[in-house]
Amino acid sequence: MSTQKTKRAEPSKPKLAVFKFASCDGCQLSLLDAEEALLDVAGAVEIAYFVEARDRRLSGPYDVTLVEGSISTPEQAREIREIRRQSKYLIAIGACATAGGIQALRNWRDVDEFINIVYAHPQYIDTLATSVPISDYVQVDFELRGCPINKHQLLEVITSLLIGRQPRTPTHSVCIECKRRATPCIMVTQGTACLGPVTQAGCGAICPAYNRGCYGCYGPMEAPNTESLGLHLQTLGMGADEISRLYRGFSGYAEAFRLASDRFEEVTA
């Protein structure tokens, strides 16, 4: 980690930078979506680099760098190493940056084949064979999960860095959030497939409250029992192939979900 000293005539505000790689921009928008808290953030830190928000681009080093998106091209692989060198704290935000994102689906297939099918001039495409999390290339100081991330959790992480304490982000299941908000379990009442019991909380259990099973956006919870849940989904009538695809979602390349999806795919084969 860089410890390069900056010359400071007077105590200056910490410099915040926001970078993105292969992603949809939704996670950085969570910062803009913070509404009045955004003004507090702007008051507490110097927003040095945040293309989505302002034209000014100050060069590094940065005190806190938020990185959205997965690494999927050789250029990105070079760039993330430079960003790491310029950053005191590097925080990966969102399912792409922490697990490779939905685009990591290509990791199970032949990328060259995709390129030939999709692009009229494949020779212009310069891509890596896999889409992987930031932590596959550089050391990451903290990972904030979600697709997209939760703005309250983002503010919690920024606050904890400014104050100098550990961020408080739960690692337990989504089920606890469902129960706190009084949502009756839709897997029990309707037999709806739901990844909530193996997925990390943080979203506030939005989908089950709207009658949709959890998609696992926040990635595997602490010690997830993906095997037991998968076997139960089979008793609800799901095929092993469907279970494999369910695990292979927005955070499907996160280790526990990846291994579970591979296991149920093998059962299918």
């Binding site: 299941s173 606890i176 019991p197 193996v198 997830p224 029992n225 037991s228 849940l229």
Partner: peptide, 13 residues
């Protein structure tokens, strides 16, 4: 433990 998801539903309800 092989079946338990440690999802905490039992304790919540």
């Amino acid at each position: 433990a092989e079946r338990c998801l440690s999802c905490a539903n039992c304790t919540m309800v």
